[in-house]
Every structure is written in C-alpha cells, then in structure tokens.
Amino acid sequence: MVDVIIYFIAFFITVPILATWIVYKISFKIYGHQWKAIHISVNWTTIFYIIAVLILVSNIFDQQFIGIMLILLLSMLAVIIILQWKMRTEVVFAKAFKTLWRLCFLIFSFLYICFVLIGIILQLLT
C-alpha cells in the first residue's frame, strides 16, 4: 500500500501538469465553481512543480541548486513583504505567503515547460 502512494506521488512529480488537471477536475466536480477549482489546483500542485524543476535542473546541468532556489524564494518573499509594507503600511504575512505561493506556481510551471523542452532538445542532439 505504501508503494502505491509513493508511485502515485512520484508520477505527479514527474508530470505535474497532469496533476494540476486532475486536481482541477476533482475540485470543479466538488465545488462547481471554476475560479475556486483553479485556486485549489494551483495551491495543491505548486510543490510538484518546484520539485520537478529542481530534478530537471539537476539532470540537465549535473548540479544541485536547492540552496540557490531557497535564497531566491526568500528574496521574493522579502520583496513581496516590502511592497506590501510600502503600499498599505501593514504587513499581513498570510497574504504575503499566498502571493508568493501563487507566483511560484507561475514561475515554476513556466520553468518546468522550458526545462522539459531543453531536456528533449538535448536528448535529440546527443
């Protein structure tokens, strides 16, 4: 039983676009509201994109970039908090984390598509 769960998670890390689609379809069936389903699928599958990009980068460049990724994420959070402080003079950390999480989905889904295409091109050239 544990093996099935591990394979299930590994499959979603390998193909996070499919995971996003499945979570969207399930949440749309449950809630019946398109935007709520989109937000739920984004919130639940962002971690799959982050892990997939880290794995793709380590496979393409043969180096680990986890430390750099953490520094970039913390820097992005700092910029979001500073902007929130300048615009409203009140910092709401929950809103800052939510903004960072959604921004991570956009960035890492774009990076995932780019690195998959780069990986395919590199495999065809070698």
Rank of each mutant, 00 (worst) to 15 (best):
W85I: 04
Q63E: 12
F110K: 11
M69W: 06
F12V: 01
I121P: 01
W21V: 15
F105P: 05
R88M: 03
A52Y: 00
G32E: 04
K36D: 00
R102F: 14
L77M: 09
W101R: 06
D62C: 02
M69Q: 11
L72N: 13
Q123F: 10
V4A: 11
W21E: 14
V91P: 02
A10G: 04
W35K: 14
W21R: 12
F61I: 01
W35A: 12
L56Y: 02
K98C: 04
S109F: 11
I9M: 13
Q34A: 15
V42I: 15
L117Q: 11
L103T: 08
T99Q: 09
L73N: 14
V53I: 08
I60W: 04
L77Q: 08
M1V: 02
N43L: 05
F12R: 07
G119W: 01
I55K: 06
L100W: 11
W85K: 14
Q64I: 09
I17E: 15
K98Q: 11
L122C: 02
I26F: 01
V2L: 10
L73R: 08
Y49M: 04
L73F: 12
D62M: 07
V92E: 14
Q64W: 06
F108S: 15
Q64N: 10
L70Y: 00
R102I: 08
Q63W: 05
L117I: 12
L77H: 10
L124Q: 07
T126L: 11
Y31H: 15
K98Y: 12
P16R: 03
Y31Q: 14
H33V: 12
I80D: 09
Q84K: 15
A52N: 05
K36C: 00
